[in-house]
Design a protein around this nucleic acid. Structure first.
Lengths: 201, 201
DNA sequence: GGCAAAGTTAACCAAATAGTTAAATTTAAC
DNA sequence: GTTAAATTTAACTATTTGGTTAACTTTGCC
């Protein structure tokens, strides 16, 4: 069995686009082959099945989506600076991969067991982060807020505008895509400021 | 052509569940028939096609999803009270229809033109709300924030935790579904408080 | 019980889909 | 030019899917 690394990557890139755009059910192997500029037989030569390919793609998406939350905060001596840094980096990442949150949330709602297993396999550990939030509360630095709620708020404000991109663009911005991009860029700072103001004592 | 209203509704309910769970591509007419407790031939007798059925379901979902934003705020003399009222009612609605935001965002990313058309057909007009936010900024009641950004933040904080329900339940709450329900109930108040603190001068 | 309305069955259709296979062709390296 | 590696072609398979149809059965009403 021989593989060309270039071809393999072309397939992965094509499959990423296809699965992100259409989800597992809507994606088509022929379409992936077309996108990759190969024939379907070669696609099956390189990747055993649709399912095998999907597994790789969503695993990668999850590993990209899960920011190293604990690292970002643990390395920052200043709670608020760490938050700002995280939000900016995270939104920046999402600007480059705008479809990932929607892809993941759709698939995890379709097959919770399978996708959650991948989340857990990624080694995500939120306890240090929760602890750090608790300490900030305890020390009087921020208001009394449950760590889980704060984490949810941070991710919601960062990710949902990408999930809802067509609505925002179409309804709020009169189909002005450039305006949408500006809005997202602006959120790198606006979201963290919003959050900090909300929690600062 | 004769129709039994009861049967018609059973089909709509079944289709709602099927489309919300699997999306358009993943939904199966046989599955919808099974859920409704009828045979597939009758399903086609009542609804011409998968597409026709889907159109009805997503139209209804959008009409439910779009809260009457302007009404809620226009009727409230107090900006913050109006915000609190809206958030509580909106999250309450989402608790009852937890899959709607994920359904809509997935489908609108799959077929933006079609779904956006439905949004526009729903008569949503955000200008009065934007105006009200501008006035609150101008009068010094709230910080200087772009109306669009505030609207995005309110909807993000309200809706995304439902889109991300399996992640929150599985990762943050150790698969404790009751805890998830409590968390969502708590958000009726926590979200509005978070927002008000973030924007209040 | 009769009859019309509503629903079911069973078989069917065409198209699409993921996947397969062997032979042929092209590419790349020497 | 030769050869091995990589890719393509063309045809195929089995299954699934949305949709159809006519005959039959069940239900509800009078």
């Amino acid at each position: 069995m021989n593989y060309n690394k270039d071809t393999s990557n072309k397939i992965l890139d094509a499959a990423t686009i296809e699965f992100e755009e259409r989800g597992y059910s809507g994606a088509r192997m022929q379409s992936i082959a077309d996108r990759a500029g190969i024939n379907k037989a070669l696609l099956h030569y390189y990747y055993k099945s649709k399912d095998a390919l999907f597994q790789l793609i969503i695993q990668k998406a999850i590993n990209l989506f899960i920011p190293n939350l604990t690292k970002s905060f643990n390395e920052s001596t200043d709670f608020f600076a760490g938050l700002e840094e995280f939000v900016a980096a995270y939104i920046d990442f999402l600007i480059k991969h705008p479809r990932i949150p929607g892809f993941i949330t759709h698939e995890i709602n379709n097959n919770p067991e399978r996708v959650l297993k991948l989340f857990k396999a990624s080694g995500l550990n939120l306890e240090p982060l929760k602890q750090k939030i608790k300490e900030a509360v305890h020390s009087g630095l921020i208001i009394d807020i449950a760590p889980g709620q704060l984490i949810i708020n941070v991710i919601s404000l960062s990710a949902f505008p990408f999930v809802a991109a067509p609505i925002i663009t179409g309804i709020l911005l009169n189909n002005d895509k450039a305006a949408y991009q500006q809005l997202m860029e602006a959120r790198k700072k606006e979201v963290s400021q919003f959050i900090i103001k909300a929690i600062k004592k």
